[in-house]
Simulated assay, not measured.
Amino acid sequence: MAGDWHAALAALAWQVDLGVDEVIGDTAIDRYELPETNRPAAPPAVAPRAPAPVMQDAPQVDPVEAARGIAARATSLEALREALSAFDLCDLKKGARNTVFADGNPAARVLILGEAPGREEDIEGRPFVGRAGQLLDRMFAAIGLARTAPDAGAALYITNVMPWRPPGNRDPEPAEVAMMRPFVERHIALMDPDVIVVMGNTPLFALTGHKGIMRAHGTWTKALDRPLLPMVHPAYLLRNPIAKREAWADLLSLQAHLRANG
């Protein structure tokens, strides 16, 4: 017992030398252990992420059906012009300056249907105003018809299958022609001409489903329950002046038809 007492006293003295000057509890305190409040908090529990919603493909729009519905709702030429200007499903519109709708007298007996605007037409917003258009005016003036004539019997009304200029003046593609056909059909129905003159392969194909304007020109047929006369495009005549003789014969055929059915 005496040994234990002396050992305990020696241990106490050693602790005093280390700086222990009082006893504050029955349990020793480890000063190297971090306090509970300073320990890093456990990361919050993360709720399981809901699966991402499955994206449904947007319904595909049939541009031809859309054009047919839009065109059918137009009850006037002005309404059709506005509907065509607002139609955004044809990529040609993105590169065009203007929507080229029509020119001339809407009361005219003769409707001329061309292919598509060129550079001058795109800038001005009217069909057939470039060199080909100037030749067209001279051609029809030779049989007494003009787009500026106030009298319906002497007037012309001019429009195109495509209201927007194709890049590089390329030929319109079949899908583009099919997209515009409902507008063309509605245009003709609202304008209600006695005769349709198609100038070039594109309008011939749009109304009859056939090409080959060099074989078809001058031969009367019917489209949309109206007499239809195919003619070569004035731009072709500018490149091939020798063909003007045949174009003159086609004009005389138109003049005879109008007189016989006046």
Rank of each mutant, 00 (worst) to 15 (best):
T202I: 07
H257V: 08
P193R: 09
V46S: 05
R119D: 11
V100N: 00
G133P: 04
H217G: 04
V100H: 00
T148R: 12
N201V: 00
A175C: 12
P172A: 15
V184R: 01
D171F: 13
V197S: 04
G69F: 01
A66T: 00
C90S: 06
P166R: 11
Q134T: 15
F128Q: 12
V54E: 07
A13N: 11
L12V: 14
L136T: 09
A149G: 12
V16P: 03
F101G: 01
A41N: 07
R73A: 13
R49K: 04
R109C: 04
R68P: 00
A52Y: 02
E33K: 11
E124F: 06
T75L: 05
M231F: 03
L111R: 08
N169Y: 09
A41Y: 04
E65M: 01
G133L: 09
A243R: 06
L190D: 02
R170D: 12
D17M: 10
L251Y: 03
G130R: 01
A247H: 01
L34T: 14
A146Y: 11
R170M: 13
P63C: 00
A149Q: 15
L228V: 05
L145M: 11
D137P: 07
A79M: 06
A107M: 07
P167K: 12
L84H: 03
E22D: 10
L229A: 13
P59Q: 05
V110M: 03
H217T: 14
A116D: 06
A96Q: 00
P51M: 05
G209H: 03
R81C: 06
P43A: 11
D225Y: 06
M231N: 07
M214H: 10
R68S: 01
G212F: 08
I24A: 07
G168L: 15
M1R: 10
A116K: 08
R109K: 12
N98S: 11
M139S: 10
L145T: 14
E173Q: 14
R73F: 02
V110S: 08
Q60P: 02
E33S: 09
G153I: 09
Q134P: 06
T27H: 08
R109S: 08
M191F: 07
T208G: 04
T202A: 05
N98Q: 07
